[in-house]
Design a protein around this nucleic acid. Structure first.
Length: 469
RNA sequence: GGCGGCGUAGCCAAGUGGUCUAAGGCGAAGGUCUGCAAAACCUUUAUUCGUCGGUUCGAAUCCGACCGCCGCCUCCA
């Protein structure tokens, strides 16, 4: 299997440090708000990468951090007159809920910054001892001039960075590009004790400390959005490698942006849709299909039209799954395995995914597979349960357990659930007409049949309403 | 200014030297099936891959120039 490594800018054969184990770290959210559908793209693609590694037989230790203390959380806590903890806890819960609705497999662990202050302080201490960091009045900075590889991941050149720098000159910094490891506490802000007085960790250090603690000094895969390459991941490399003296990450994976009207979707631009908003209109399967139909490194434009098209595609897969289940429920004969090579579809799927997670190609394989199976079923050939079980297994192994574009355990879409109410309204309307025509027999059939489904009609003067039993 | 990416059918999008007269999805047209539908299936929908040159027996794929779009260089998935 090949993975594109941002560090080398080439596709590399993936070989973990300690097979079959894989250590996988993904930069998670700062919990100050609901995450948007652009963030969801990264989380879903990381989930697909993780699940495909598991499909290949790897045992993945999947860590996704939660940044639960930072400027934005503090700002929100002041605006809403709540503690930073309340804000963080609320949005952490919302985050986990949304991940679940996106069919994202729970991480092995979601470490929180505030629960790793000791580890962070320890790492900063090491950096100071080794001469990579310096203190100015209770604040600790990383001295990038001491780390000779700085800029290697992002391809930045230090002189040019400084020349074109838009960073405010901080009098305390030796170099404008030096970054904060530990922030001196301000009044009314959360604070923790440290050898340099009260304060709180800078943003970059938590990932270095937590990934080291939970995955070790050298990890196999570190993933995140394209916008994290610089400075966040560059800084992580500097901190981790300076402190540990070892290679930090073996494969760097970065996800392309989700754009809206050709511009990067982001909180600061305000051109975003929250994931929950989108989940209320489109099925998880459609959202994941939408993401899977584009390669993870490229840009992807978001629009409701495209999502609606993906929903149609998801419907097609859903119909297929329903058909297989229906066939399986019939009385089946022992023999009747058609001339059909499921293995070749597994091969095609694997070849596609092995090539730097070519999900569009993998999706195409699944659609081709469904068409071929439908042809067999349409031909009227008797098929046995073994064949149908194999078909179902293929769909579960690939479309469900890796891509997450179908769910045999839940073969209705969110959209369809939302449709239920409208459908009942239509039945009530028809029944109203029947009543006017005094066709009470049919009207009663509608009422009785709905009743059997747990929907109780109530005829009142002002019209018909209904309740669910 | 520096670094990186992108431009393939009506739309989305794989493919990155020959099997490409280019996968798959959505849409559209016609057909099979059906009482009519739906679902499914079949056929059609790019001789062409931003433009112009070049390399090559051969290019969507490599090189050069140009045009257009986007991202990072500040918090950001």
């Amino acid at each position: 299997m090949k993975i594109y490594n941002t560090f080398s800018k080439t596709k590399e054969e993936f070989v973990p440090l300690n097979p079959p184990n894989v250590s996988f770290y993904v930069c998670g959210p700062t919990v100050y708000d609901y995450f948007h559908i652009g963030n969801a793209r990264s989380f879903v693609m990381a989930d697909i990468a993780r699940k495909y590694l598991e499909f290949k037989g790897f045992i993945v230790n999947f860590i996704m951090n939660i940044t639960d203390i930072d400027d934005k959380i503090i700002k929100k806590s002041i605006n809403e007159k709540k503690s930073t903890r309340e804000i963080a806890d609320f949005f952490t819960a919302a985050f986990k809920e949304d991940l679940k609705r996106l069919y994202i497999k729970p991480a092995t662990l979601h470490p929180k910054a505030t629960e790793h202050i000791e580890d962070i302080v320890l790492m900063i201490k090491q950096l100071i001892e080794k001469g990579y960091a310096y203190e100015v009045d209770g604040t600790i900075f990383f001295d990038i001039s001491k780390f000779k590889d700085y800029g290697k991941l992002s391809g930045k050149n230090l002189e040019e960075l400084e020349a074109g720098s838009r960073i405010d000159i901080n009098e305390n910094k030796r170099n404008p590009l030096d970054f904060v490891l530990w922030k001196k506490a301000k009044e009314n802000e959360p604070e923790w004790d440290s050898p340099w007085g009260k304060g709180r960790p800078g943003w970059h250090i938590e990932c270095s400390a937590m990934s080291c603690k939970h995955l070790g000094e050298t990890i196999d895969i570190h993933a995140g959005g394209n916008d994290l390459i610089f400075p966040h991941h560059e800084n992580e490399i500097a901190q981790s490698e300076a402190a540990n003296g070892k290679k930090f990450v073996r494969y760097w994976m970065h996800f392309g942006f989700l754009n809206f009207q050709n511009e990067k979707m982001s909180k600061s631009l305000g051109n975003f849709f929250t994931t929950r908003e989108i989940l209320s209109k489109y099925s998880t399967e459609a959202i994941r299909l939408f993401f899977s139909q584009t390669h993870y490194r490229g840009p992807l434009n978001f629009s409701e039209e495209l999502l609606a098209a993906a929903e149609k595609g998801a419907d097609k897969i859903r119909n297929f799954a329903l058909r297989i289940n229906e066939e399986l429920s019939k009385d089946l004969q022992e023999d009747g395995y058609p001339d059909f090579k499921i293995k070749s579809f597994y091969d095609e799927f694997t070849i596609a995914m092995d090539d730097d997670l070519n999900t569009p190609q993998a999706v195409a394989t699944i659609f081709n597979f469904m068409r071929e199976v439908n042809k067999v079923l349409d031909s009227g050939t008797k098929v046995n349960s073994k064949f149908l079980e194999d078909v179902k297994k293929f769909m579960k192994d690939t479309a469900q357990n890796v891509l997450g574009i179908v769910n045999f355990e839940k073969l209705t879409s969110n959209k369809k659930e939302a449709l239920d109410d409208k459908l009942i309204e239509i039945l009530i309307e028809i029944r109203q007409t029947l009543k006017k025509e005094k066709n009470y027999q049919l009207a009663d059939i509608i009422r009785d049949r709905l009743n059997e489904l747990g929907i109780v009609l109530q005829d009142k003067k002002e019209g018909t309403s209904y309740i669910r039993k």
